[in-house]
């Protein structure tokens, strides 16, 4: 069985601290996979390894059967791997529309052009505007990011990533820090992602995980404890002991 994104035998240590230990993970096309685990389990590290922010000590990463372990971060993005950040990484002094236009423009390879005027034929801006509409952000198109409430900023975080038309999308706690009244907007946006995109979501909120995921991996101390369908994970005694605790019983 081959997936669109495959991680094989990944290891990473920071000094004596082994943050990733022999991790195997496969995402099929159209996957809705959740990665859960207690704080410090190494979930974000795993995303950083997959996207190329960090280099693994050992192991390989395959994107559409192609070994991308030594490929640069930008190379992987060009090949369809995109991520969002747990803590917003936005262009805070730019408008919402420009934030998204930057990623659309980068995908279309226009950001190399330094002689003709940006967006003069508005192809990039039009596409960015379509994305904003999809996420209900059109009324904020000309609002500068730092003036937006946090929940809206989280949506921009997703919109920027969608501007890259990814094949594989890694969502690092998309609903983190968003007031509970606004989480549905984020979740609807995630639900509305196309079936052709494989999605890996890191999330602490179990309601989100069980609503969204068709399969779940549990990461504990850098190693995969177990994998399975949401039902299997919910029934798994080991998982309940290590991570879910009483939160499911309640």
């Amino acid at each position: 069985m081959t997936g669109i994104l495959e991680v094989r035998g990944l290891y990473k240590s920071f000094g004596a601290l082994a943050v990733t230990q022999n991790v195997h993970l496969t995402l099929e096309a159209g996957a809705r996979h959740a990665l859960i685990g207690p704080n410090g389990a190494g979930k974000t590290t795993l995303i950083n390894l997959m996207t190329g922010v960090l280099k693994p000590d050992q192991g390989n990463i395959f994107l559409e059967q192609r070994d991308v372990t030594n490929m640069s971060e930008s190379g992987r993005v060009k090949n369809g791997l995109a991520r969002t950040f747990q803590i917003n990484q936005l262009f805070r002094k730019l408008t919402t529309l420009e934030n998204v236009a930057l990623s659309v423009s980068e995908r279309l390879g226009k950001n190399h052009v330094f002689w003709s005027q940006a967006w003069r034929n508005s192809e990039v801006l039009d596409e960015a505007m379509v994305l904003l509409k999809r996420l209900g952000l059109q009324s904020d198109a000309l609002t500068v990011i730092e003036e937006l409430p946090y929940g809206r900023q989280r949506l921009v975080e997703i919109a920027i990533t969608l501007g890259l038309s990814p094949k594989v999308l890694l969502l690092d706690e998309p609903a983190a820090g968003v007031p509970s009244t606004e989480t549905p907007i984020i979740l609807d946006a995630v639900d509305a992602l196309g079936d052709d995109i494989a999605v890996l979501i890191i999330e602490h909120d179990m309601d989100v995980v069980f609503r969204f995921a068709k399969s779940i991996s549990v990461l504990v101390s850098g190693a995969i404890l177990t994998e399975g369908t949401p039902e299997e994970i919910a029934e798994n005694e080991q998982v309940r002991a290590v991570y879910l605790g009483e939160s499911l019983d309640a």
């Binding site: 996207t51 922010v53 971060e73 930008s74 190379g75 992987r76 993005v77 060009k78 995109a82 991520r83 950040f85 990484q89 936005l90 262009f91 805070r92 002094k93 730019l94 930057l102 990623s103 980068e106 995908r107 950001n111 920027i160 990533t161 501007g163 890259l164």
Partner: peptide
């Protein structure tokens, strides 16, 4: 404005 984000969008 955000070097890390530019890398993450493939720049």
């Amino acid at each position: 404005e955000n070097t890390e984000r530019m890398r993450a969008i493939g720049s």
